[in-house]
Design a protein around this nucleic acid. Structure first.
Lengths: 254, 254
DNA sequence: CGAGGAGTTGAGGCTAGTCAAGGCCCGTGG
DNA sequence: CCACGGGCCTTGACTAGCCTCAACTCCTCG
């Protein structure tokens, strides 16, 4: 279960320096700096040398690449416990930019000392490994989101992913405060941002969620999960008639 | 550059046991078994306990999850040097099934002994880390493929990815022998398999590739790359200026 | 209080999904 | 060796759903 993996990797990584033990015995000079990143500011830049490995402590980020046509493709959203730039460990260069979605804080580990730190902190090696494996599983899930044909299904899967991420961090899985814009969601899901808007409206009219700007509440997570199952085929013919909600495409609600 | 990363991780992992040194000094009892997997046979099953970590030696695999509606979603294609099931390191359970696309061979590392092996072979820990980072970057690329609107663009990006993968393994980047079916490609790209067919035809008619069943030749990789740049907007209006490239948005470089 | 981005909604064109039919490749068995 | 069968692949016609463009409102922040 990726959920457990996340919280464990979070713990592994954060407990090491975050007040749990004021100073771990064999880490005399390895007290790590905490950086503040303001909303909208970049933490990492695509193509830059990967001399630091970061661990998100608070806040959230988006991971994106800008194409040569100027289009910003969002590849992932990151939260506490995630390790932005960890995919650069294999190449030495940042594969994508990482931008803060809100005021956030991160730890920074110098990449050159990673090998040494790994030996000093046996938990670090495993924590990094877990974080990496978790982010791989997470990205696979993004592929699953985009694989759905219907836009409402994509958005539904995204909301469920977000809900489970929140739960894994000990926060409410029902009440979601979106830190990202509709445009960012649209980019991740591979659809137009107008379509995201319409999909939110559609899910709300089905009674599955309540949407108020960036404040989203999952009213019927199980129903959402049901509608979200089908990869191909449309949402319209799935939810059967729960009450007498919406039917059909043109949907005249009465 | 992920290309370098792949070949290095491959070397790191394969050289350890593959004839380079008949038996590494401190690995007396760690001579790893090589398994044969026949075409179509599963190597890993979704949900199974992750007691083994595999390294592909020869052949190729697809990584997939079957939804509750029975739809088989392909998440990745794997080749020599890749590490199927490595995303299970964080959770202990296989996140997806891995099926051989052709007769293949793999190494198997017992997961319980990983920690011990890591200590014995310093290269192993780094190799695993590299493989993991590489596969994360690779999956991010899959997201980029699916993000393109036009089907021809998705297929073009897929072909370029495959070409670079082949190059990284020392094989021809021009001549591609597809080991996977159109249906598998379609699943990965998030489009219908008929559309893959039509996209192949379209790229061939543009003179960018030559397609003969599963034998594909990249006739104009640069042109393919050009057509593949635009995430949004159709292929049709791009190949118009073959010389005067793109100017567009904010970036006037000269 | 004003400006600008973010979000919503509408209309229309077009891509790609769906259904359907047929051809091709290849493994199997007579 | 060849005939058969069942996949894989291709192509066509139709239609649903999404992207584009555009206008307008709302929220936020300076």
């Amino acid at each position: 279960m990726p959920v457990a993996s996340l919280s464990e990797s979070l713990n592994d990584l954060l407990r090491l320096w975050d007040g749990d033990a004021p100073r771990s015995p064999c880490a005399g000079q390895t007290v790590l700096p905490v950086w503040r990143v303001r909303a909208g500011a970049p933490l990492l830049l695509e193509g830059a040398p990967a001399d630091l490995v970061h661990v998100v402590r608070t806040g959230s980020f988006k991971c994106q690449r800008v194409g040569e046509d100027g289009y910003e493709q969002v590849l992932a959203f990151l939260g506490p416990g995630d390790v932005p730039g960890i995919d650069a460990l294999g190449s030495g260069r940042q594969a994508c930019s990482v931008v803060a979605l809100e005021d956030s804080t991160v730890f920074a580990l110098p990449a050159r000392e990673l090998d040494r730190l790994r030996l000093l902190h046996p938990g670090l090696a495993e924590g990094l490994q877990r974080a990496l494996a978790h982010q791989l599983a997470d990205t696979r899930r993004t592929v699953e989101m985009m694989a759905a044909v219907a836009a409402e299904v994509r958005l539904g899967r995204f909301l469920l992913w977000l809900s489970e991420s929140m739960a894994a961090r000990g926060q409410s899985p029902r009440r979601l405060l979106l830190r990202m814009s509709r445009r960012d969601i649209a980019s991740l899901l591979g659809i137009a941002h107008e379509t995201v808007s319409r999909a939110f409206t559609a899910l709300a009219e089905l009674g599955l969620v309540r949407v108020e700007n960036r404040d989203v509440e999952l009213l019927d997570a199980e129903g959402l999960r049901r509608c979200t199952r089908a990869t191909r085929s449309t949402l319209a013919d799935l939810p059967a008639p729960p009450l007498a909600a919406a039917r059909r495409a043109p949907m005249l609600v009465a």
